[in-house]
Nucleic acid binder design. Sequence first.
DNA 1: TGCGTCCTAATTGTAATACATTTATACGAA
DNA 2: TTCGTATAAATGTATTACAATTAGGACGCA
Lengths: 255, 255
Amino acid sequence: MISERKLQSSKWAGWQAVRAQSVSSRIIEQVWDALFRGELTPGDRLGSEVELAQKLGVSRVPVRDAFRTLQALGIIDIKVGAHGGAFIAAGDAKRFADALAVQLKLVGISIEEMFDSQIAIETMAAELAAKRATEDDLAHLRELVDELARMSSKPLSKTAAVQFTQVSMRFHEALVDAAHNRALAAQFRALRIVLEPIYSRRTSDAIARRVVASHKDLIDSIEARDADRARTLMRHRLEVVRAHQLMKAVDSPDP
Amino acid sequence: MISERKLQSSKWAGWQAVRAQSVSSRIIEQVWDALFRGELTPGDRLGSEVELAQKLGVSRVPVRDAFRTLQALGIIDIKVGAHGGAFIAAGDAKRFADALAVQLKLVGISIEEMFDSQIAIETMAAELAAKRATEDDLAHLRELVDELARMSSKPLSKTAAVQFTQVSMRFHEALVDAAHNRALAAQFRALRIVLEPIYSRRTSDAIARRVVASHKDLIDSIEARDADRARTLMRHRLEVVRAHQLMKAVDSPDP
DNA sequence: TGCGTCCTAATTGTAATACATTTATACGAA
DNA sequence: TTCGTATAAATGTATTACAATTAGGACGCA
């Protein structure tokens, strides 16, 4: 998206003097670079369209164009009304999850690629969870597994089978959160958005029991702070899911 | 980004009649929905700003706003000149990488989180490379390692030390590409955008030799199709880098 | 006929102005 | 004090105009 970056060592001085290329792309580039140089942090005000236009000696149009682009990239929020204008946005995982969804739709990445990527993320998450999970994290995980165990103790009705899948997904989320790594969590959520429609909605009784057993083992290993075992268990679990999904097994279990 | 989606079962009929909210956001929503309903595929022409404006009974401005947003999202390409206008774009993994990088930057993720995430991605990439690397992939990797070996055979000058770091980064890129997984590749590039400014620019002689040895081992394991060993080697390598960087060792080696 | 050049029309990029709409803040009235 | 209202700042949209870019056809030349 943005390529050449000249030094311009000054902090806020490099903002006027927009030269070649298109004006709007220059503005975008400058904001982008300033963000990654750490000169801009969430909440900072860039100014209004008119302010920036005057400062750069251009009309509202290219500034507006740049604002729309930066807004779409999730870099700025735009507020209407008095004391409005462009502000550096706070991070929002959903934004790049959307971006991922778009690209996957356009490129047509294979399911297999997605699964392998998911395995990479979640096995590391399991390992880190074993190292860093707090008592609260563990309690939350146990709670979810108990709920799954209760559900699987009797034959699953149609609605219960759907609910089981959802709770199981919540378990995976909780586990990733227990790893206390927001980069992993962000990537996990992005992958999930794309993979979710692929996973089957309902879980069969037999698989449900396997899932519960597997999750219980996982919690045990985390509780024992056995990172290697946690990673291995998660890996095996996901390989099974992967195999099921890739042969289009309709009764596939837990995402 | 886009929320409510009403049915409007017709294919191209729902395009006029833009009502409440902001006009531009309605346009964005319609294109977004059409894309995910499969009514738009890469290469399709949306029309020019004027065409759409007339069709929707609005001015060029909101249509232009929508185009900028859709362009930033990677959904459309805009061509200038005769027979130009907006076209549904082909996918581009770099866009997702940019989006992820932005969010990681905005959320303010710690270096440690980034490293662990990188380890997750690259260890899986090494493993997959051992399974799926082609002869071309291996040749490319060998080429890069040979270059590194040549450079490290004599003491590194200041500029050579910088160059060594760059070539080493190219090696990591080549390895991820050899895994033939675009989802992993996109995530790798995203992390790299954020991590690159952190890594030291120059590599010391002692470390350079260690890096070359490590990379050679890695290639050997890939050539032997030993996925476990490839993963383990990559893991150890990155753990070393991680430790170096976290104690702010200025002579840190290869990203 | 074949090929290269120029021209033309379509289209985005930018400018300038105007007005409607939204919103934070200050001021004023009860 | 509290509530409402006026005001000003800012985006959203409309209109018109022109510069810059570009694809494709027309034209001319061999």
